[in-house]
Computed example of a mutant assay.
Amino acid sequence: MKKIILLIFLLQSAIGFAQETSLKRGNSVYIEAPKSDIGKSAAGELQTALRDWDYWKVASSKKDADFILKLDTKISGGVTWTSWGGKSVALSASMRDKNDGEIWQSEYYKASPNGSNGFDSQSAAVKKLVRGLKKKFN
């Protein structure tokens, strides 16, 4: 029983160490996004926001990156109480190593178009995602 507990502790320590080393400040990230127009546009905004944050360097290719941020987008439309008939956007970031192994996964950050975000749900969702990343990694 003691060996099993020790093994579990060692595995958790190794996973935590791998996460800390690849996602630490100053490392480089490559942003991978869906090929849809929204995915490409959200990735561009995310790239700018990450450069402004200056926690990680944004790499221009996977081979130059320490890890990959895989952006996932969910779009929903229609008239709802919060959307005013525009498209709602939800974004999630999955941090992956170069072998496509998942290191960390964020929750989905959703925004609906409304007057407080200039009816730009995509930009609002990117801002929420970056706020979540700052909270986790700062």
Rank of each mutant, 00 (worst) to 15 (best):
K70Q: 15
S76R: 12
T73C: 10
G26H: 10
G86E: 03
S83K: 08
Y108N: 10
L23I: 05
K62Y: 01
Y55W: 08
S121Q: 07
A90T: 08
I4M: 00
W81T: 12
Y109T: 03
L129M: 11
F17G: 11
T21L: 15
T48I: 11
D100H: 02
S94Q: 06
Y30Q: 04
S83G: 12
K135D: 15
L10E: 00
E32K: 13
W81A: 11
Q19M: 12
S106C: 08
K24V: 10
S22Y: 14
Y109K: 08
T48P: 01
K74N: 13
M95C: 13
A124M: 05
I38Q: 03
G118I: 00
N27Q: 14
G39A: 08
G16D: 01
N117K: 11
L91V: 07
G77C: 01
K136Q: 14
S112Y: 11
R131N: 15
I103L: 15
Q19R: 14
K98C: 09
A125V: 09
A14F: 09
D64L: 12
I15L: 15
A14W: 12
A65Q: 03
W81R: 13
K40F: 11
S88V: 12
S28E: 09
A42P: 08
P34R: 02
L10D: 00
A90W: 05
P113I: 10
G132S: 13
S94K: 13
G16P: 01
L10M: 10
G85L: 06
Y108I: 00
S36G: 10
A125F: 02
E102K: 13
L23F: 11
L129E: 01
E107P: 06
A43H: 03
K35G: 15
I38S: 13
L11G: 02
S36I: 04
V89E: 00
S88Y: 05
D120V: 07
G101P: 00
A111S: 15
G26I: 12
K40T: 13
A90L: 04
I38F: 06
I31Y: 05
S41K: 10
W81N: 04
G86S: 12
V29C: 09
W56M: 05
K74I: 14
L10K: 07
K2Y: 03
